[in-house]
Nucleic acid binder design. Structure first.
Lengths: 139, 139
DNA sequence: CTGCGTGCAAATGGTTTGCACTACG
DNA sequence: CGTAGTGCAAACCATTTGCACGCAG
């Protein structure tokens, strides 16, 4: 289960398992659309009324540092968070603030193949992420 | 010349040609590495000591709205600006704050071709931009 | 027990806003 | 001239910080 996986990960990274960390991680997993810190705080306060805003930011930072969460950047300048840590791209809605994960191994292979042949001068590629902007057709 | 081109563009968009707008545009063109608002202000103050910070932000916003500049977002949360308006990607240095433009028509064609065949469910693509992270070898 | 993690509240800093004044067209 | 644009300073607000206390290991 997600919860146990997370607790195990914390231990492995030498981080203490606290109710705050568990709650924050669960919030990011359960909330859709890559929540902002504010959304996460709202969600958590239902069950943890006393959790501090500063704590949420500190926990989010340390989880990102330890690769248990990822930061997602959008056109605005508010930071959002993603519990999907594996390599993936993002679909950005041009009309709303919706952001969806997009995994596509075939595409990744195609792009890697391309850059295997065509090097960028004086630059060693470590990671390629696509920002795909467009419109969701419904829902 | 760049300057005349810019003045012409302002007129066409119905924006007044002011010394502030010209100076801000020139700053973004001349400064390398996709300057922040702060860098732009420092640069301009050499010749326009009285330009207001608020004005710089307002001008940058309106130039972006009118497609005369682009915003560049990095992992941190400070906005940076780009005078290259044509479609291109960005090379992000993983160790410094350096950001370079990267144009590659062949790559664009390859990716467009790929998505011509493989549609994303319930999503209509408008634009695809790559964030290429890595290391510059020297310089 | 020991120090990592938390709560709290104040500080920070990039960006925005309101308004009177200026100058472009 | 009339209004878009500017200067200024205060306001905003997401995020950070410092410190005393509390709890996980």
């Amino acid at each position: 289960m997600t919860n146990d996986f997370f607790r195990e990960q914390l231990k492995q990274k030498g981080l203490k398992v606290t109710p705050q960390r568990v709650a924050i991680y669960e919030a990011v997993v359960n909330l859709n659309n890559h929540p902002t810190a504010e959304k996460i705080i709202d969600y958590i306060r239902r069950n943890h009324p006393n959790i501090a805003i500063g704590t949420v930011y500190k926990v989010l930072d340390s989880l990102v540092d330890n690769n248990l969460l990822k930061k997602v950047k959008n056109d605005k300048d508010i930071m959002r968070y993603d519990a999907v840590v594996s390599h993936h791209h993002h679909l950005y809605c041009s009309e709303t603030d919706r952001i969806e994960d997009y995994e596509d191994e075939l595409l990744d292979k195609l792009i890697n193949e391309y850059f295997k042949n065509k090097k960028i001068e004086k630059f060693e590629i470590q990671d390629i992420t696509l920002q795909i902007t467009g419109k969701f057709n419904n829902n």
